[in-house]
């Protein structure tokens, strides 16, 4: 088995690891970096649970080779809170408005699609400050949720947008 040395920039932190070259970004995040917040529902690109941001763009970690990520910024749910990972005084992590709105609206039921949903929603709000309901529905159409019927998720994203 060929291990390769990889340097990834995840949630603002440089991480160097040796990983099997056929392992996906999903596997590396969860198994090598301990970032189990990124979930997996099918590993075939058919559910969206493993959505992470690469340079701010939502992609599926289950179909991404870490070697090809290069020096792009990878953001996972663990990095969603503003200043996450920072320990200096005044840089304590504060929850992202999406996290607060999701809690308030009950947009996470079982919570399993939630990390991927949050990352998709963050990318949407980063490019579209006040998305319409139709824009939200399109944006999250690659993230299956089996619990909510999506309604509370729409409301949470709208609420987070309105507070930005």
């Amino acid at each position: 088995m060929t291990k390769q040395l990889l340097t990834l920039r995840v949630n603002g932190e440089p991480r160097t690891i040796a990983a099997d070259s056929h392992h996906t970004l999903l596997e590396v995040l969860r198994e090598e970096l301990g970032l189990t917040g990124t979930k997996h529902g099918c590993e075939l690109g058919e559910c969206g649970a493993c959505t992470v941001l690469v340079d701010g763009v939502p992609v599926l970690a289950c179909l991404t080779l870490p070697a090809l990520v290069g020096d792009a910024d990878v953001t996972t749910v663990e990095g969603l809170a503003n200043g996450a990972g920072a320990g200096a005084p005044g840089r304590e992590a504060t929850l992202h408005p999406l996290q607060i709105a999701f809690a308030e609206e009950g947009a996470a039921q079982c919570g399993y699609c939630t990390p991927g949903m949050l990352m998709t929603a963050k990318a949407l709000l980063d490019t579209t400050a006040r998305p319409t309901r139709a824009q939200i529905a399109s944006a999250i159409s690659g993230n299956l949720c089996r619990c909510t019927g999506y309604t509370a998720i729409y409301e949470a994203i709208e609420k987070a947008a309105s507070r930005a």
Binding site: T2, S21, H22, H40, E43, A67, L68
Partner: peptide, 12 residues
């Protein structure tokens, strides 16, 4: 988890 089979990656 369903994983990729092993392969060698080249990046021209």
């Amino acid at each position: 988890m369903l994983r990729l089979p092993r392969f060698r990656l080249v990046e021209p």
